[in-house]
Design a protein around this nucleic acid. Structure first.
Lengths: 350, 350
DNA sequence: GTGAAAGCGCTAACAC
DNA sequence: GTGTTAGCGCTTTCAC
C-alpha cells in the first residue's frame, strides 16, 4: 500500500499566503492574535487550495479529535437491528447527533459496548485510546453504569448521560419520563377514564420507575386508586403479553392501559383482540416511544413521542460547549416529549 | 482544554518489553520478521499495560486510518429519518458494515453527501482530507455518480459501489435485482397468475431498470404478454398510488402486482382497498425491500428481502482485502435476495 | 501580532 | 530478525 499523503497541507497554505505555519493554524482554529487583514489573506489561500485540516494530525498535536462517540448497548442494538421491527432509536440518534456534529465540523461514531460484560472498562478504554474522542454520549443503560461513568470521569473526557438522574460525573440529559407518563395519564383521565393500568418496563432502566411515578402522581391528584393496576414487564413483547393478560383478566379490568414501550403496547393490542375487547371502544391504549410500527397497527396507536433526535442533538451541543470550556448546566437538561394522538383512545363506556 | 496525551504509548510497551519501538510496531501490525518468542514477550507487555495504538498516530505515519466511510444520500436519508416510517436501510448497513468492521479493528463512519449538489466533489474531498479513510462505500445513487467515482479513483482510495454495474473504477457489489424481480414474478406465475403488473421505481436508480428486466424476462419465458402492465413510479407513496390506480382501473386489470419498493406497495394496498379489491383474494401483492412496515400491514406483505446487511458486510470485507493488496474480483460480486412469504399472495380467482 | 522550534505516537526505509 | 532514523501534519510553547 502506497503511503498516502495529504494533498494540501498547512505548509502549502502558509507558503501560498506567505505566512508562518502558526498563523495558518491560528486562522483555522479561529484564535486571536491575527490581524483581520492577515486572516483574510490566509482564508483566501485556504479556499483557493481547498485545504482541509487532517483530523489525525490535529489530534496528534494534542488538540481536538473532532470525534464524538455515541455508546449504545451492544446486545439490545444488534437484536433490534436483526429483528427489523422498526425500532429507530439509532436512526433518531444519528438524525439529531450527526447533523449537530456536522454543523460544528465534528463526526459522530456509533460504538456498541456490552454493559453486562466484565470487560466493559477494557472495551471502552480501547475505543477511547484508539479514537481519542472529544466527548462521549451514554445511552441507557450505560448512562447508569458506574464503571463507565467512573472511567470517563477519570480520563476527563466530557460526557453526557442520557436518561439518568444518577450521581457522579457527567452532564445529565433527560427526556422527562415522569412528566410524559403524567401527560398520558392526564389525557386519559381527561377523557373520563378512572381505571388506568400501567405496564411498566424493566427496572434496569431508571426511566421505568419515573414513568410509574408520573402515572401514580397523576392518579393520586385525580383522587383515583391505583390498586391492581400496575404490572411489570421488561420491554419485551412476551412480557407485555403476560402483563396485559393479567390486567385484562382481572375482575375489575382497566378501561385504559399505558404501556411503557411500543412492543408491550403491541402485545396488549394482541391480548385485547384475543379477549374480544375492541380498541378503542372497550379499551383505550397509549404507548411509549412512538416508533414507526405504532402507526401501522389497527388502530394506529396514540403514543408518547420520545424526542430522541432532539436529545442527541442537545447532547452533542453540550459536549462541544464543554470542550470549549464553557460553563455547563448544574441541573439535568430536560427535553420534553409530547403526546401524539391517533386512534387508540376514546372515552370509556362508549 | 488540557493537552490530552495517550496514557500508554508504544514507547512504554517497548521499554517494558525491552525491545525497540519498531519491534512493537511489527507485533501490533502482525508483520513478519519477529521471532515468536519476541512476539510473545511484546504481546505480554501490551496486554499487561493495556496498550491500544492511537489511530491518529497510525494514520499520521502513513499507514491505515482504520476508518471506512459509508456515503449515503443526504436528502433521502434525512427524509427517511424524519418521516419515521420504518425505513431501516441505515440500520442494516450498520448491522452488516459496523460488525464486520469491528472484526478487523475498523470503524464505520456514516457520511451524508448531497448527490444533486454541484459541490459534491468539494464535500467529499473535505471528508476525505479530514478523515483519511481507508475505503469508501458508495450507496445508490452515489454509486453511479461519475464525479464521485472519478474522485475516489484519482485519490486511489479503495471503494465499493453498491447497486451499480457501471463502468469505471471501483468494486461492484450487487443485490441482483434482476434475479429478485424474476423470483417474485416466477412465484406469482407459479401460483397461476398471468396478468402480473409491475410498478417500477425511479430511473435515477439503475436497479429500477434491472427489476423491469427480470420481470419482463420471467413473463416472456412463461409466454405471457406484458402490455399495459408496467407503470413507473419514483419510489414515493404518491407515485405508487398513481401507478396502482392506473393499473387497477384498466379494463384488463392485473391479478397481481409487484411494487418496486415498500412505499409503493403500501400505496397499492391503499388503492386496492379504495376500489374494494381484497388482498390477496382479488389482488396479490409483492413488495420490494422488506422494510419493517410491511409486516404490520393488513395483510402482512409477501416481499423480496434486500440483503442490505450482507451487502454492507461484503463491501467492508472487499475494502479491507483491497487495503491489504489482495486480489479483487473482476466481476461484480452478487449478494442474493430472497422471497419472504407472508399473506398478500394467493392463487388468482379464488 | 507573528514566527521558530519542539514534539505528539507511530511507521517506512534503511542499516546492522 | 532487530534497531535506528527520519518524518507524517499539526499545535504547543516560547521567543521576538
Amino acid at each position: 500500500m502506497a503511503r498516502r499523503k495529504q494533498a494540501v497541507t498547512i505548509r502549502h497554505v502558509a507558503a501560498d499566503a506567505g505566512v508562518s505555519l502558526q498563523t495558518v493554524s491560528r486562522v483555522i482554529n479561529n484564535e486571536p492574535n491575527v490581524r483581520p487583514e492577515m486572516k483574510e489573506r490566509v482564508q483566501a489561500s485556504i479556499d483557493k487550495l481547498g485545504y482541509v485540516p487532517s483530523i489525525a494530525a490535529q489530534r496528534m498535536s494534542g488538540s481536538r479529535s473532532y470525534l464524538i462517540l455515541a455508546l449504545n448497548d451492544r446486545e439490545r442494538t444488534i437484536a433490534d437491528w436483526r429483528a427489523r421491527e422498526g425500532t429507530d432509536w439509532v436512526d433518531q440518534m444519528l438524525l439529531g447527533g450527526m447533523l449537530k456534529c456536522a454543523e460544528h465540523g465534528y463526526r459522530l461514531i456509533i460504538e456498541l459496548v456490552d454493559t453486562h460484560n466484565d470487560h466493559v472498562e477494557r472495551e471502552l478504554s480501547a475505543a477511547i485510546a484508539a479514537l481519542q474522542p472529544d466527548g462521549v454520549i451514554l445511552t441507557p443503560p450505560h448512562s447508569e453504569n458506574p464503571l463507565i461513568v467512573g472511567l470517563l470521569d477519570k480520563q476527563r473526557i466530557p460526557f453526557v448521560r442520557i436518561g439518568s438522574r444518577g450521581n457522579g460525573a457527567g452532564i445529565l440529559v433527560l427526556m422527562d419520563d415522569e412528566r410524559s407518563a403524567r401527560l398520558a395519564t392526564d389525557y386519559l383521565l381527561g377523557m373520563g377514564h378512572e381505571r388506568i393500568g400501567l405496564i411498566a418496563g424493566s427496572d434496569e432502566y431508571s426511566l421505568s420507575g419515573w414513568r410509574i411515578d408520573g402515572w401514580r402522581a397523576a392518579m393520586a391528584e385525580a383522587g383515583v386508586p391505583t390498586d391492581g393496576l400496575l404490572e411489570r414487564g421488561d420491554f419485551s413483547f412476551a412480557s407485555g403479553e403476560k402483563a396485559a393478560r393479567k390486567l385484562l383478566k382481572s375482575p375489575q379490568r382497566p378501561t385504559a392501559i399505558i404501556a411503557s414501550n411500543d412492543q408491550m403496547a403491541l402485545a396488549t393490542l394482541k391480548v385485547a383482540r384475543e379477549l374480544g375487547l375492541d380498541v378503542p371502544d372497550e379499551l383505550s391504549l397509549i404507548s411509549f416511544d412512538n416508533t414507526p410500527t405504532v402507526r401501522f397497527t389497527q388502530p394506529a396507536l396514540t403514543a408518547i413521542d420520545q424526542p430522541i433526535a432532539a436529545t442527541a442533538s442537545m447532547a452533542v451541543e453540550l459536549i462541544i460547549a464543554a470542550q470549549k470550556g464553557e460553563e455547563l448546566p448544574e441541573q439535568p437538561v430536560i427535553v420534553s416529549g409530547s403526546l401524539v394522538e391517533r386512534d387508540s383512545v376514546s372515552a370509556p363506556g362508549t
